[in-house]
């Protein structure tokens, strides 16, 4: 028997009533998705496309207008399903009067970590997000990057099988975003399923196994990252020491075989790669 998917969404529709007249606004329109276990899954789309609403319905924070959602084979609105799920909301806000460690401890107790395991679980989560030194400081003094990381720690403190991250890199500098990317990879290495909503497409491409793209509440594309990005009708050759004569000979050879040389350019590295190369080792603090 195969295990149930991490998240299964079937024909989900969500309408909001707005204004005094109760005008209907359809945020999610007949969405069906199956997110396999043990993978990093990117849920992408422009602002207002229904990503966050979908996640809220999955977590039982917003009731669905129609359709069904299950987490790890359980109805998503049940406490049992939520006990096996960790969630970092978009732009998280936490009680400023708590220290990072107190916040994670609070969430550990709410998430059902046994009392004799709480301290070890807190230290483990804080260490995974690399905040051990700052965990004693009040959350109100944290930078955006640190807030996102302590948010991640509270989401994973109970060792959930499924972790849902809504814009975990929003407002975070590239070094901090890379650190969050490494944490996501560490979670995948532990066999967790990670659902990632992000506008950092470069990072999504790097860390995700599969992606789904939503627009106007509908699913427009879904598949493995390699599959959806690969253009099977075109090829790239990377050549060292290309002389003009060699280029002309190669172009003639291609034409002779019925192919056409589209463009000859120098490969570029991304600004993010350059930035990370130049500031390696520095952290946001």
């Amino acid at each position: 028997m195969t295990a149930a998917p991490a998240i299964e969404v079937r024909h989900l529709t969500k309408d909001f009533r707005i204004g005094l007249k109760g005008v209907k606004l359809r945020a999610v329109d007949d969405l069906s998705l199956s997110i396999p276990r043990g993978q990093v899954y990117g849920l992408l789309g422009p602002n207002g496309c229904g990503k966050s609403t979908t996640l809220k319905v999955v977590l039982g924070l917003v009731p669905a207008t129609a359709g069904e959602v299950s987490i790890l084979g359980l109805p998503s609105a049940t406490a049992e399903a939520r006990a096996r799920t960790g969630f970092l909301p978009e732009a998280p806000y936490f009680h400023k009067f708590l220290s990072g460690r107190e916040l994670v401890r609070y969430c550990a107790h709410l998430s059902g970590v046994p009392s004799d395991r709480v301290e070890a679980a807190v230290e483990e989560a804080v260490a995974l997000v690399d905040l051990r030194e700052a965990a004693g400081r009040l959350v109100g003094t944290y930078s955006k990057g640190m807030l996102q990381r302590i948010g991640l720690a509270q989401a994973i403190v109970h060792d959930p099988e499924l972790v849902i991250l809504d814009e975990p890199t929003a407002g975070v500098d590239p070094v901090g975003a890379a650190a969050i990317g490494r944490i996501i990879e560490a979670m995948r290495a532990r066999g967790k399923t990670v659902v990632l909503c992000s506008h950092l497409l470069g990072q999504v491409e790097q860390v995700c196994d599969r992606v789904a793209i939503m627009d106007k509440g509908r699913l427009v594309l879904e598949g493995a990252v390699e599959e959806v990005l690969e253009r099977r009708d075109r090829h790239v050759l990377t050549v060292d020491a290309l002389t003009p004569a060699a280029l002309a000979a190669a172009e003639a050879a291609l034409v002779a075989h019925g192919a056409r040389l589209g463009a000859v350019t120098h490969p570029r590295r991304s600004l993010e790669e350059l930035f990370r190369e130049l500031v390696t080792g520095s952290r946001d603090a």
Partner: peptide, 14 residues
């Protein structure tokens, strides 16, 4: 309003 309820109610808390 501060959306801390979002974090809390996503946990196994009724």
């Amino acid at each position: 309003d501060n959306r801390t309820a979002l974090t809390l109610l996503a946990k196994p808390l009724s």
